[in-house]
Design a protein around this nucleic acid. Structure first.
Lengths: 158, 158
DNA sequence: TTACTATAATACGAATTTCGACAATATGCA
DNA sequence: TGCATATTGTCGAAATTCGTATTATAGTAA
């Protein structure tokens, strides 16, 4: 059974939705009137569809700060293995830690992969030793330092 | 020597910039007049600073699509080891592949970690066998399946 | 098919926001 | 201090957004 995430009548994103997404991907502040003109519908239609897609979690219009420019110069992927029955607790703790940008449940040697953003290596070692290793249930940790981001894109819709 | 990324006069983000970022992080379309009212400056000031921060790559105002809602149901981290002198070439190829959302140079057993977004496991295996393994210089690959995203945040500024 | 219902799209005027040109003010530096 | 430059403010015109009421459309059931 397919999950319906968009209107009861039209279960999927249609051409207008994709047109909206394509436009707003590049510039979240593009006037709805301009998108409307391009797509041949009224501004109100664009406005309503954007609202719907936002409500449904399909689309987010956000400001993103370049972490390096905000002083977060050190980034790392950290894989975490936990005792099986403590996984939920570990995740709950990670959820509350501001340095943790991403937590993903994975297959493989470690149950979790996380992404950590901190100001410098001092903060990274503090995080690893004072925070992560103190979380009950964490058994093993693998740190993958991010030396340089070579490609990064948020635009999925073409 | 510290990199200056903001004005020759003011090398860092100041309180107004942070106020702007905090506001736009939540809603990229928030009217500048409202931000201005909150911060006690004019709309023109907000407008100019947003423009500057965008020009400098500090801030991006973008629409982000939930990949799952856009049909990209299978996501994986893929670590890649390459012949030392072929690293650049491999990265160049990865740059041109749409399924590749992220490429990061890392420390550790593999030089690269990438994030792959595809529609289904059929596409993932196609990508691994027909695309990745055919890139000259790739010697070893480690696939970490993303089973569930437990935390994900783009907001760095508090 | 036809009528009914719910959802989506349009029309449109008022309120708000954006934009640009110019003036005033601040800052960095010699 | 004073000059040069960058930032901020003022303000009116143009564009955009917003809300209400109306029309159109698709799905559903008789």
């Amino acid at each position: 059974m397919e999950e319906k995430f968009r209107r009861s009548l039209y279960p999927e994103l249609d051409d207008i939705d994709y047109g909206i997404v394509r436009a707003l991907q590049e510039n979240a502040r593009l006037p709805f009137t301009q998108i409307a003109k391009e797509l041949g519908v009224t501004e109100k239609t664009i406005r309503m569809r954007v609202q719907q897609m936002q409500d449904e979690g399909v689309l987010s219009l956000v400001g993103i700060v370049n972490p390096v420019k905000a002083g977060l110069n050190v980034q790392a992927f950290v894989q975490i293995a936990t005792e099986a029955d403590k996984l939920d607790d570990v995740v709950a703790v990670l959820n509350g830690i501001v340095e943790v940008r991403l937590v993903v449940l994975t297959s493989g040697d470690y149950q979790l992969i996380t992404q950590i953003l901190v100001r410098n290596y001092e903060e990274l070692s503090q995080f690893l030793m004072k925070t992560l290793n103190k979380i009950p249930g964490v058994t093993r940790v693998n740190v993958i330092n991010e030396l340089k981001i070579l490609k990064s894109k948020y635009k999925f819709v073409r």
